Simulated assay, not measured.
Amino acid sequence: MVASEIHAASDPTLGWCDSQTEFAFTLDLLLDGLERLKDS
C-alpha cells in the first residue's frame, strides 16, 4: 500500500505524494460538505 502512495520524485506528472496534506484537504472538504448539509 505504501508503494502505491509514493510516486517517483523524477516523474514530473505526479512528483512526491504528500499523503498528510491530501488527507487534511479531503477531510476539510468532507467536513465543509457535512456542515452545509446540516445548515440546509
Rank of each mutant, 00 (worst) to 15 (best):
L37S: 13
F25G: 03
P12H: 02
W16N: 05
K38W: 08
L34Q: 08
S4Q: 10
L27S: 13
A9E: 05
D18Y: 01
S19L: 13
Q20V: 11
T21M: 12
Q20K: 13
M1L: 08
F25W: 09
P12W: 01
W16L: 05
V2S: 12
D11C: 04
K38P: 00
G15A: 02
K38N: 07
T13C: 14
C17V: 08
F25M: 15
A9F: 06
S10H: 09
D32V: 04
S4K: 09
K38V: 04
F23P: 00
R36G: 03
C17N: 14
T21A: 11
I6H: 02
L31S: 02
C17K: 12
P12D: 01
D18I: 01
S19C: 10
G33Q: 03
L14G: 04
S4F: 04
L37A: 15
C17I: 06
A3T: 05
T13M: 15
L29C: 05
V2E: 11
L14T: 14
S4E: 07
L34W: 03
D28Y: 03
Q20G: 02
L31Y: 02
Q20C: 08
A8S: 07
W16K: 10
E22G: 01
D18T: 01
P12K: 02
D18C: 02
T13H: 11
S4V: 05
E5P: 00
